[in-house]
Amino acid sequence: MIQKGKAWKFGANIDTDLIAPIQALKREKPEEGYVHCLQDVDPDFAKNCRTGDIFVAEENLGIGSSREWAPHYLRLCGIRLLLAKSYARIFYRNCFNLALPALVCAETHRISAGDELEVDPLKGEVRNLTKGESYTCDTVPEHLMRIVADGGLLEHLKKKFKKAS
């Protein structure tokens, strides 16, 4: 489950209204709205983000509205893993439910935009290939990584009910 990708770097207090603006999420399909993801912070983010990239922020990532479009849009942009010093709790759970590991890393200030990172979420290790540094993350509760391994909570539930029937 090692994730290798380019870092997108944001600051503190990135809220879910910024990640998923209301004008976008009234669209019927998330696929129609994600291009507006973070438009008021970095208008080029949605366009230039590539599959496998890593979202790096400082404190309080995902504060505000419970809207699941926030991690959903990040996933549609291509983000496959998040690193932040702290998360708002609904957003944190939403990420794992959409198979996006959200790791708590106290050293994200050492990561710059564009750094190549290699992250092992199970071991909680981040290697910054650009800077030749490594950082540690808090370990993730085991049951959350099982949800990620199944491809998200929906797939996890499908599997559970299939087993039961």
């Binding site: 419970s66 699941e68 609904i90 759970r93 939403n94 439910n97 959409l98 998200g152 539930l157 009910f161």
Partner: peptide
């Protein structure tokens, strides 16, 4: 508590 939509799916199901 507030939860996200897929989390709610889990509650609706279980």
């Amino acid at each position: 508590v507030g939860i996200g939509a897929t989390e709610m799916t889990g509650v609706l199901a279980t």
